[in-house]
Amino acid sequence: MSTVSSGHTHAHHFESSQHEHKAGIHGVWLFLVTEILMFSGLFVAYAIFKGVYPEVFHEGHRYLDWRLGALNTVILLFSSLTMALSIHYIRVNKPKAAMINLLITIACGLGFMIVKYIEYNAKFHHGLYPGHFFTAHEHIEHKNLALFFSLYFCMTGLHGIHVLTGMGLIGWVAIRLKKGEFGPHHYTAVEGVGLFWHLVDLIWIYLFPLLYLVS
């Protein structure tokens, strides 16, 4: 059983390393499909409940600070840029530039999570916890506001887990880059992780207006 990595050889059941690359990337696209369908459950729940309780969603979004949401949007978009750039630099054989961009991407992910932490803390401070733990019953207008925050925490929480996973994966490819395992013709893992990171961005692109800008 030959290995994939350092020697730039390919596993025994593939004809060539290009063949292996194509199969790997195809697998990543299929994986992204499963991610989208998993998130689709939350989006469907969102859409159904927004249809039934538009006023609850309107009240809920007033508790969210759109400036922090917009800041996070910009952070993630920028991280998508640096991710794309790092792949570009690997392909033109500039591993150092690629490395810098990967590290910036991780830093952006970290920044995103810090902003998220600040936001969550503010919610908790007002008793706006998910589900049973919701304690802000006195000063709210609509009885089912907890439902909005359940959705908010489920959607951003699952997304946050994906951000953390993405950061871990980028860290993993950064280590492999450091070891010199990638080159202009050998970067399947970076490209796959990049696709995953862009998907995380893609989901946030929808979450931002749905949660922070609904009226």
Binding site: F39, G41, A45, G131, H132, F133, K143, A146, L147
Partner: peptide
């Protein structure tokens, strides 16, 4: 994947009471 999110939400429903599937919570 839809089963995955469904079961996850069911677990959240039991542990956090998120209320998506509970009429008493809307």
């Amino acid at each position: 994947p839809v089963l995955a999110i469904t079961l996850l939400l069911l677990v959240m429903e039991r542990t956090l009471g998120i209320g998506f599937f509970d009429a008493s919570l809307g």
